[in-house]
Amino acid sequence: MSAIVPDTLEGALILSLIDFFLSFVVISFIGFVLAGFPWLNRVFERRSPGAEPLRAGRAASPAKLAAQSEIPPEDVAAISAVLAMVVGDHRILHIESHQRGGDWSVAGRLAHHQSHTTVRTPKH
């Protein structure tokens, strides 16, 4: 295979312009594909009966939650008991392994981390 671009300064400029421009185009295409991933979630959730969202105003039974989330029934019972003690009347909508939904726990840890910072207010 031979070089398409001539080995000159002009060739270097053309190569750079084409490469930089195409990089933007291709990476934008990847971004476009990634933007469609939430749609992928919605499609699979609609098809998967196990992932059917609970109707508002109706509490899920621990047994149903356990079946949906693959969490042992005894864990669901323990979580329900602790919640009842701490917050009183409640209903659990969803339980999942902490490794899967780490965002809220990360946010909590970051908030805790920030509480130890010596400078609490932004510099202006």
Binding site: A3, I4, V5, L15, I18, D19, F20, L22, S23, I27
Partner: peptide, 14 residues
């Protein structure tokens, strides 16, 4: 981004 730039470089330089 680096892979894309490198890939285009290799393709255009034959």
């Amino acid at each position: 981004g680096t892979a894309i730039s490198g890939g285009i470089l290799l393709a255009l330089l034959g």
